[in-house]
């Protein structure tokens, strides 16, 4: 069983909701990421999505775009991100790590080479925003052969038939994008999220996490009620951006404080 599936089983047994957290590797500086990852786990994060920066992050709102720009400016690459996961695994062998990014850096590295190295360093899943199931090609096999989960997004505009296709290609969990648009966007309609999740829930037995537009403990708690977990991204990247130039420990502490707050909210459920 993959580390991701294991984590969902454990959480289920404890009656806890999954808190999935997203930061961009190398943002705002290469030294900040590793201590922040450990701090996030300490503060109650269950799964880490590590953003791989890309020059053209088409699905991101302004906050995460800036995170990508800061990370690229500090020289972050996909290979460097894989190396960082190896570092993280030296002291943490239980928290699942998913790489989230765009297709081109993975294409450039080569699907097989990527999958081999990902397995070697202890990456558990890949979420490639611009690689729908129809365009996966050889990557699907390369990941599956190594039990690396392939995470897909579902959107409010995803029709049931398509949701079935996505679910049949996915493993680990499914990520429901709670609103039309980009990361970090406006207001979230909890009733609309519920209607969609009810629909998708009939199509798949995979755990379902909800992200996009979750800004605080209150929204996170309201949404988590409906799903297996929530994904928090923009609010963390925003905090990283506010601490540019500060020592890594201070950045990690600021991000950890946000996560602790959300964790407390989730644990009331």
């Amino acid at each position: 069983m993959s580390r991701i599936s294991q984590q969902f089983e454990t959480l289920k047994a404890k009656g806890r909701k999954a808190l999935v957290v997203y930061i961009v590797n190398g943002d705002p500086s290469p030294a900040a990421t590793l201590p922040t990852m450990h701090k996030m786990v300490e503060a109650g994060a269950d799964i880490i999505e590590l953003g791989v920066p890309f020059s053209d992050p088409m699905a991101e709102g302004p906050v995460i775009q800036k995170g990508h720009e800061r990370a690229l400016a500090s020289g972050t690459s996909l290979r460097g991100t894989l190396d960082l996961v190896a570092e993280f695994r030296k002291t943490n062998n239980t928290t699942p790590v998913i790489l989230m990014g765009y297709a081109n850096p993975v294409v450039r590295m080569g699907y097989q080479q990527f999958a081999e190295r990902a397995l070697e360093v202890g990456v558990d899943g890949l979420l490639t925003v611009d690689l729908p199931p129809e365009e996966l090609g050889d990557l699907k096999t390369q990941l599956a052969e190594r039990d690396i989960d392939n995470i897909f997004l579902l959107a409010p505009t995803t029709a049931p038939e398509r949701a079935r296709l996505l679910a049949s290609n996915a493993s680990g969990f499914l990520y429901y994008v709670s609103l039309k648009g980009v990361t970090g966007a406006g207001h979230l309609d909890v009733d609309a999220v519920k209607a969609k999740l009810d629909q998708f829930g009939e199509l798949t037995s995979l755990p379902m996490c909800v992200g996009f537009g979750i800004k605080d403990a209150e929204t996170a708690t309201n949404v988590a009620r409906l799903a297996d977990g929530v994904v928090i991204g923009s609010v963390l990247v925003d905090a990283m951006g506010k601490h540019v130039g500060q020592p890594p420990e201070q950045i990690a502490a600021a991000v950890g404080a946000i996560i602790s707050d959300i964790r407390r909210g989730l644990d009331t459920l």
Partner: peptide, 18 residues
């Protein structure tokens, strides 16, 4: 499916598929 041999296609986020 929108391909010219290995080129073209539809490499977009799920939000745009619809």
């Amino acid at each position: 499916t929108g391909h010219f041999g290995q080129f073209g296609g539809r490499f977009v986020s799920e939000t745009l598929i619809y």
